[in-house]
Computed example of a mutant assay.
Amino acid sequence: MVKEIERAGFPVVQMANLIPVAKTVGANRIVPTISIPYPLGDPSTSKEEQWDLRYHRVGVALDSLTTEIDEQTVFEVEV
């Protein structure tokens, strides 16, 4: 599905914690997430820390949409 959307001219970013699977399905822009049950959060942290974590990861994903790439790229997420 990702390839078809991009073929239509729309950049797509896949946020995933299983990077090899994202690569296998053909995602070109990949942003790592935290875990399978909580991709954009960590219930052991405060709500403020979770907000910061989510805000940062979504920001990386949005930035990746405007980045020119020539091959599959996994965008770094600083902790």
Results as ranks from 00 to 15, higher is better:
T33G: 00
K47W: 02
E68W: 09
N17L: 10
L40M: 13
I30G: 07
T67M: 06
Q50T: 03
T33N: 00
A16I: 04
V58K: 00
G9T: 02
P43S: 06
A27W: 00
M1L: 03
E49C: 06
K23F: 12
P43C: 04
V79C: 04
G26V: 03
F75D: 11
D63T: 02
A22D: 02
K47N: 06
G9L: 10
T67E: 15
I69W: 04
R7G: 05
A27Y: 02
I19N: 00
E6H: 03
E71S: 07
S46I: 00
V25N: 00
Y55A: 10
E71D: 11
D63V: 01
D63E: 14
I19M: 07
Y55S: 10
G26T: 09
V74L: 06
H56K: 15
E4Q: 15
R57C: 02
I30A: 06
P32N: 05
T66V: 08
S35Q: 03
I36L: 14
S44K: 10
R29E: 04
A22S: 05
T24H: 03
L65E: 05
K3A: 12
V79G: 07
D42K: 08
Q50C: 13
R57Q: 13
T45H: 09
T33A: 10
F75T: 04
P39M: 08
R29K: 09
I34V: 15
A27R: 04
P37Q: 06
V2I: 15
N17F: 04
D70W: 09
L65M: 08
K23I: 03
S44R: 13
Q14Y: 00
S64Y: 10
A61I: 00
P37C: 09
T73W: 08
S64D: 01
P32G: 11
E6A: 01
E78C: 07
L18D: 14
I34L: 12
R29I: 05
L62H: 09
T24I: 12
G41F: 01
V13D: 03
Q50H: 04
L40Y: 00
E6P: 09
P20G: 14
N17S: 14
R7H: 12
A8G: 00
I19H: 07
V58I: 15
A8Y: 10
L18F: 08
L40K: 08
Q14W: 01
Q14C: 14
M1A: 15
T73R: 11
R57L: 14
A22G: 08
N28H: 04
H56M: 13
E4A: 13
Y55V: 01
G41P: 06
R7S: 11
I19D: 03
A8S: 12
